[in-house]
Each structure stands twice: as C-alpha cells, then as structure tokens.
Simulated assay, not measured.
Amino acid sequence: MTHLVLPQDANPLGHGHGGVILKHIDTAAGMVAMRHVRGNAVTASIDRVDFIRPVFVGELVHLKANLNGVGKTSMEVGVRVEAENLTTGEVRYTNSAYLTFVALTVDGKPSEVPPLIPETEEDVRRQHEAAERRRMRLAMRCREGQ
C-alpha cells in the first residue's frame, strides 16, 4: 500500500503524524488478514512501534505487509514502512510493526483461520519467528493476569 503524505497528515514539525502512520499500518495489515480468511478480521493487538526515522510531507509512505503466522482464530501480520522522497528517489526504512488479527464470522464470533502454507525459506523463517513472538505475547498476558 502506498500513501502520499499531505499537510493534513502531519504534526507541527511537518513530519507524518504517528497516529496517521499507525492507521495506515493497521489498514495494510487488515487487508492481508482479510484476504487470507476471505472474511472479517479485526485488530486484536499491535506490538511495540518505534518511529526510527521521520516521514515528511510530500513523501510517499510504502507499507509492505506479510502474513507471518496463524493460530486457530488469530493471525500475525508484519508491516514494514518505508518513506520515498519523490525528488531524489531516496527510499529509507522508517519503522515496522507486528499486528495480531482475529478472524470473525458474520455474527462477530471468532472463526477458524485457514492454515498458512510456506512457499519459501523466508516464509518458514517468518512462521518460526511469529510462533516465538506468539509464545512471548501469551506469557506476558499470563504475567499481567489476563
């Protein structure tokens, strides 16, 4: 997904507003999740997001989203964000995030997610890393008493 950063998307410094970038991250990830289940999917969580480099007004924001792993009713989607200066052609990494989505029936109840079949070694690596992050999320939730 690509978005042109306009003045209404900026904070007072002229940088892309973090909330606007997060909205685009959530939208890109949501499209990946819904395409996988061919139905409804909602955001359950977003892991920590660090804004490493700013995005400026007039630049393109490229969001590259991948389905990394699936559970019974949930999915992890990773999103990489890059900014492109249209004048110089420079492309730079700005941040990334992992989001968890839950598939829902038309009645709003969790529904089973189709399996994710890896096609490349990169897909296998992503699945293993997603499984480890899921274990860490569940352990953290247990520690927080949820």
Rank of each mutant, 00 (worst) to 15 (best):
A130D: 01
D123W: 07
S96Y: 12
E82H: 13
T105M: 06
A97L: 05
Q127Y: 10
R92E: 03
Y98A: 08
H128T: 15
V79R: 00
R80C: 03
T87F: 14
E129Y: 10
P115T: 09
G89N: 07
R134E: 08
R134L: 08
Y93S: 15
T73Y: 00
R126D: 02
R80N: 14
E119W: 08
V81Q: 03
Q127R: 14
E132A: 07
N85W: 04
A103E: 03
T120W: 08
T87P: 11
E112Q: 13
T120C: 11
T100S: 08
I117R: 02
E90C: 11
T88G: 06
V102M: 02
P118K: 01
Q127S: 15
F101P: 03
V79L: 03
L86P: 03
L86M: 12
A139Q: 10
T100G: 02
A83G: 10
R80P: 02
M75C: 02
Q127I: 11
S111M: 12
R92T: 11
L116Y: 03
R133M: 06
L138W: 15
L99G: 01
H128A: 15
G78A: 11
Q127L: 10
L104G: 08
H128F: 14
R125I: 13
P110F: 09
E76W: 00
A131C: 11
R133W: 09
G78E: 06
L116R: 02
L86G: 06
L138H: 10
E76T: 04
L104Y: 05
S111R: 14
T73R: 04
E112M: 08
P118A: 04
A103I: 00
E82F: 11
A139N: 06
V102Y: 01
E121F: 10
P115Q: 12
V81R: 00
R135D: 15
R137W: 11
V113S: 05
E129T: 06
G78Q: 07
P110K: 09
L116C: 05
V81M: 11
S74C: 09
T120S: 08
L116E: 03
R125K: 13
E121G: 15
P118E: 01
E121V: 10
K109Q: 13
E129P: 07
R135P: 10
E112H: 06
R80E: 13
E122V: 14
L116M: 06
T88R: 08
E76Y: 04
